[in-house]
Write a protein that binds this DNA or RNA. Structure first.
Length: 560
RNA sequence: UGUCCGAUGGUGUAAUGGUAGCACAAAGCCCUUUGGAGGCUUUGGUCUAGGUUCGAAUCCUAGUCGGACAGCCA
């Protein structure tokens, strides 16, 4: 039985009731059934967390990974591999229960034959246009196909000839014989097998006929002993057909289909088609572009699997088709990274700072805490010298009120080092400040005698002679509006031109030079960053911003 | 248009006929060698109209609004 302390939702309640009622001998078997025709995205993560999550909460519960590969036109082996990788990366284990709908093609064919023998399916010669026309529209009943009353023998013979490839694509289909007057379009003699003379990524050229989703899915579920078949809302209207098919045939079990609302995330798009359009249109660099809501993109960006899982549990599961604020995802990322990411200093937009009373050629090392949230992460030594870089944002010649950073005459602490006072600035011909000159107070070194002295601001820095240069990419939301598909005109008009900012001359503390691909750190006072696995090279890690730190000053300054 | 589904603060959710709560966001304060993190406080909600009931977010009826469906896609 499920632990009642765990968060629940309407699906878990249904499963609970079924278990209590002793259905399926109290077993819980779910499945995650992707079609291998594209990459997984954060919306799939919701489904993965749900299906694997529900199963894991019951004694002996399991979740299968089943590829719904019934349409060879769109499906490819490379997608199978990326999907397996993504599910594993998210932290879930199908425990050897890896299946393909194509594993069941023989069985499915036999089920179709059984249906024909029961007089519940027929071969139809109508063209697809005619079928559409005969189907009618929802308010009015459809018309029956003239081929509907063929004899069982003829249907059997024709279906066999379809299988052998004797007909062309589109020439004939197998249809379930249900009710052309049903108010549910899906019950109006739906097509359950079509001819496709296309090579399949797993069964090669063995088959010329392939089952449709509605036929294959419920029977695959039944064959695998799935107890709860959880899917998204758009399949709700398919449920009567799911039930009908299982009721006609002799199947080992009768799974229960339950629908929930798919995830909609603000400031992005989620459909495979639109995502593909972004990739093909060159709007992003690929499926794993760090701005993409794909798991491949989010992984490359640096999101942790735990933060995605936490996000999924926070958003809950309902039948309400809403829009989740991306801020919730960002919060989940910060929450996890705050605990786990070590701190480093990096200056993204460097401004030279010279300490005029500091010895010319001296270098010393100051001790820096790796993670204030995790003392066991220890400390490191950071080189300090006369010439430093600080962030351009941390200096203003004419500061507004409440600006606690550096400006002429003001003091700030250089984190882990000394308190410095700005005495002067150097400008170029255009009047831009290109160097800040300071004096330091030797007594105020961290841990030293005068260290207790309070100043309003603390800023980060790197030593110019010791820092190394690298590229840092700042990612932002892909669109400028919450729901680009909910507007007049082309959704691509709302792409955010500032979704990517590449900074080429960032100055990073030396400890960062050995950072490995995929490593995540917090750049103090800036945000969480991840070493890009593609564009980094030994000794020169390139960083992707996962998410910025909350910035109260930016908020304050923005309001002015 | 017909069927099905849904509706609780700005957003996502909880309350399963009995005190409308939580998280994010927003605002304010405290703390701070990250304007980070943390702590405290505040603002703000049951789509509408009827009905059942001692009592309704919850049950019933009608309406309003939103979504799904009319592929030989899944």
């Amino acid at each position: 039985m499920r632990n009642t302390d765990l968060p629940s939702d309407f699906i878990r309640e249904i499963v609970d009731e079924d278990v209590k009622a002793g259905k399926n001998e109290g077993k819980v078997v779910t499945r995650f059934p992707p079609e291998p025709n594209g990459y997984l995205h954060i919306g799939h993560a919701k489904s993965i967390c749900l299906n694997f999550g529900v199963a894991s909460e019951y004694q002996g519960g399991i979740c299968h990974l089943r590829f719904d590969d019934t349409n060879p036109c769109a499906e490819e082996e490379r997608y199978v591999e990326s999907i397996r990788e993504d599910v594993k990366w998210l932290g879930f284990d199908w425990q050897g229960n890896l299946f393909f709908a194509s594993d069941y093609f023989d069985k499915l064919y036999e089920f179709a034959v059984e249906l024909i023998k029961k007089g519940k399916a027929f071969v139809c010669d109508l063209s697809s246009d005619q079928i559409r026309e005969y189907r009618g529209s929802p308010p009015a009943p459809g018309r029956e196909s003239p081929y509907r009353d063929r004899s069982i023998e003829e249907n059997l013979a024709l279906f066999e000839r379809m299988r052998r490839g004797e007909f062309d694509e589109g020439e004939r289909v197998l249809r379930a014989k249900i009710d052309m007057a049903s108010s549910n379009i899906h019950m109006r003699d739906p097509v359950i097998y079509r001819i496709l003379k296309v090579s399949h990524h797993r069964t090669a050229d063995k088959w010329k006929v392939y089952p449709m989703y509605d036929f294959a899915h419920c029977l695959s579920d039944a064959v695998e002993g799935i107890t709860h078949s959880i899917c998204t809302l758009e399949f709700e209207v398919h449920r009567p057909l799911y039930e009908w098919i299982l009721a006609q045939l002799d199947v080992p079990c009768h799974p229960r289909q339950i629908e929930f609302a798919r995830l909609n995330l603000s400031y992005t798009v989620m459909s495979k088609r639109k995502l593909l359009e972004l990739v093909n249109g060159g709007v992003v660099a690929g499926w794993d572009d760090p701005r993409m809501p794909t798991l491949a993109g989010m992984r490359r960006r640096g999101f942790t699997p735990a933060s995605i899982r936490n996000f999924c549990s926070r958003i809950g599961v309902t039948k309400y088709d809403g829009m989740t604020d991306v801020a919730l995802l960002e919060h989940s990322a910060r929450e996890d990274l705050n605990k786990s990411a070590e701190r480093r200093m990096a200056v993204l937009n460097p401004l030279r700072l010279v300490i005029t009373n500091y010895p010319e050629d001296a270098t010393e090392e100051v001790e820096a805490v790796n993670n204030p949230e995790a003392p066991e992460a220890g400390t490191r030594r950071v080189p300090f010298s006369r010439v430093l870089y600080i962030e351009q944002d941390d200096f203003m010649e004419e500061p507004p009120k409440k600006f606690h950073r550096l400006y002429p005459g003001n003091e700030v602490r250089l984190k882990y080092a000394y308190i410095v006072k700005c005495t002067d600035v150097v400008k170029d011909e255009s009047g831009r400040v290109i160097e800040v000159r300071c004096t330091y107070d030797p007594e105020t070194r961290s841990g030293g005698a005068g260290a207790a002295r309070k100043v309003k601001g603390t800023i980060h820095w790197v030593s110019a002679a010791h820092a190394f240069d690298t590229q840092v990419r700042l990612y932002d939301r892909l669109f400028t509006v919450e729901d680009p598909t909910d507007t007049e005109g082309d959704w691509k008009e709302f792409l955010n031109p500032e979704s990517l900012e590449v900074l080429e001359t960032c100055k990073l503390e030396p400890a960062l030079s050995g950072a490995a691909a995929g490593e995540r750190v917090q750049f103090e006072r800036v945000g969480y960053f991840c070493v890009d696995a593609v564009d980094s090279s030994p000794g020169r890690p390139v960083f992707n911003r996962i998410v910025s730190l909350k910035d109260r000053w930016a908020k304050l300054a923005g309001k002015r």
